[in-house]
Design a protein around this nucleic acid. Structure first.
Lengths: 218, 218
DNA sequence: AAATAAAGTTAGTCTTGTCTAATTTTATTA
DNA sequence: TAATAAAATTAGACAAGACTAACTTTATTT
């Protein structure tokens, strides 16, 4: 299989490809990984030799079908482990990413499928990203946010859009978790602030930015 | 923390120390890891600098108290993951070791403790080895084997002493797992073969060597 | 279109962890 | 105890994956 570095590059390229569908340049990869562009050029050569990517100055970096397959599997493992860490081991949202970043590289042919089954074949990870199925297919990303809810409506938190620890710790403080019910009491027209009630508790006000970062199911 | 290699050396030294309590030489470590003695000498220097071991030509390699602590934690993680893989993901005995070998290096301050709790604080791993507690303490290894059972007696399989895939696959074939009940029907004096009944099924004959490899609880 | 800025690339270096080959030290045996 | 074998060590090399510095190519701006 691939080395740890190779897998990280693959995953990065996959993410850039999903995010924007734009041309993927060595510089973009370097920035995304926090590496030097020169190092990226080395790895591009290596991954090209392994037929996982194709690189053309005009088109930028593209994943081959094998590269897509391999990258999808890494993402699948990452997101499954995130579910495991949150649901089974009781970690908080802001702690799971880094650990899953390590766990995703554990190599075993049946591990992902067994974990998937053990977790009850979850569709989404705690960040609202769909978990690729064993065949590589996956659902669409959650897209409705708290900011889309109409005043008077209520909803259930399913995931977060922003995964910075600042946001996740703020959620912690507000006692908002996956499954938490939120009622939208009022929208302040001035700045689109949201007055909400968390699990029926007292009213609190949060910003528009906050509302747009919380993925919900109505 | 430590690199993957450092951790593997630590674990190896810990194992050699537990196994025999004899002088641990560079050559012994090299053989155990399948490495070149020259490489071992390099790593001995590195671990000595990190104050994890002490090396004296007369006394051989010894773990410092910090080294013992760190090694114990790695062993704890390894054994806990083995329990997880077997009990939760349905792997077989002969598959879990190699995967746990990777999982044991996942670095997170609370992971082992959370996993321990999730698994219900198991005392032993599927190979009968005691799982070190968070404080470093651990129970004694299981020591009664099927060969110690008297004719007419019955027992419950708790672990295996031999972890070669040949043995583990043989168990598989005989449908023997952890918790399986075995009655000892007869001991053949000629070669100490054992006539047994597995979960009350028809009689089967196994060798003395087999009996000595199966750890049981009476 | 020339000047300048940005992106991409090459060459060479460093660290980690391994190796081989050669040498030194320690143990064993005739 | 001298000769020989085994173990330990040193020196030097190599691959992976990162880096810096310098150079080239491509884009942008005036």
């Amino acid at each position: 299989m691939h080395t740890l570095s190779e897998e990280n590059y693959l995953k990065c390229i996959y993410r850039l490809w999903q995010d924007k569908g734009q041309k993927i340049t060595p510089t973009a990869i370097a920035e995304s990984l926090g590496n030097n562009p020169a190092s990226v050029v080395d790895m591009i050569r290596k991954l090209t030799d392994k037929q996982l990517i194709a690189y053309d100055k005009k088109k930028g970096v593209e994943l081959t079908s094998q590269g897509q397959k391999d990258a999808t599997l890494i993402v699948r493992r990452h997101r499954l482990w995130e579910v495991f860490l949150l649901e089974k081991l009781g970690y908080h949202w802001d702690e799971i990413h880094d650990i899953a970043e390590e766990l995703e590289h554990i190599k075993d042919a049946t591990l992902a499928d067994r974990l998937d089954k053990f977790l009850g074949f979850p569709e989404y990870d705690p960040h609202g990203d769909p978990i690729p199925k064993a065949n590589g297919k996956m659902a669409k990303r959650f897209s409705t946010t708290l900011a889309d809810v109409k005043a008077g409506g209520s909803c259930r938190v399913v995931a977060v859009k922003d995964t910075t620890s600042q946001f996740l710790q703020y959620l912690q403080k507000l006692d908002i978790n996956i499954g938490t019910n939120i009622q939208l009491i009022e929208k302040i027209p001035f700045d689109n602030s949201l007055v909400i009630s968390i699990n029926g508790a007292e009213h609190k006000t949060v910003s528009q930015k906050f509302g747009e970062s919380l993925l919900i199911d109505i």
